[in-house]
Design a protein around this nucleic acid. Structure first.
Length: 125
DNA sequence: ACGCTGACTATTA
DNA sequence: CTAATAGCCAGCG
C-alpha cells in the first residue's frame, strides 16, 4: 500500500488530527491537475481543500514537491498576484519561468502575463 | 517547550 | 496608491 505516498514523509505524521499528510497529498494532486499553459494560486488550492486560510501550508507542501513521484508542476503555482514568488525554491530559480514560457505562459519581471486570463480554478477542473 | 520563520492572503492605516 | 499587521500551521533551533 503505502508505497510512494510517503512523498511527504518529511514530518513523521501527526496523530493529533491536524493538517496531516492527507492535506499535503491533496495539494500535490490538485497541482498535478493544473492544465498545461495554465496557472493557479496557493490560496485557490487551499480553498479547494477547504483551508483557504492556510495558503501558507500549500506553499509549505510545495517544499517537498520535487521529491514526489509523479512530477508536480509547482511552476504552475504562483501567488495571487501571479508573481513567481517560489522561483527561488527551484533547482535553478530560472527554471520556473522557463517552464512556464515553454508551456506558453508569458512571464515578465517574475510575474505571469495575463495571469487573470490564464488562472485556473481547481474547482472548475 | 518556546519562539522564529515561511513558495500566502486579506484587512487596516 | 503603498506599507504594515493579523491569521494561518508546520518545521526547526
Amino acid at each position: 500500500m503505502p508505497s510512494r505516498k510517503s512523498a511527504e514523509k518529511l514530518k513523521t505524521v501527526r496523530p493529533s488530527g491536524t493538517a496531516d499528510e492527507n492535506f499535503f497529498s491533496l495539494v500535490y494532486e490538485v497541482t498535478r491537475q493544473i492544465p498545461r499553459g495554465r496557472v493557479t494560486s496557493y490560496g485557490a488550492i487551499a480553498a479547494a481543500l477547504g483551508a483557504k486560510s492556510s495558503a501558507r501550508m500549500v506553499g509549505w507542501a510545495m517544499n517537498g514537491c520535487h521529491r514526489i513521484k509523479p512530477k508536480v508542476p509547482a511552476h504552475r503555482v504562483v501567488n495571487r498576484n501571479g508573481m513567481l514568488t517560489g522561483k527561488f525554491h527551484f533547482d535553478p530559480p530560472e527554471r520556473m519561468e522557463e517552464l512556464l514560457k515553454k508551456e506558453g505562459v508569458k512571464v515578465k519581471n517574475d510575474q505571469v502575463v495575463e495571469f487573470k486570463k490564464l488562472f485556473w480554478d481547481p474547482g472548475e477542473g
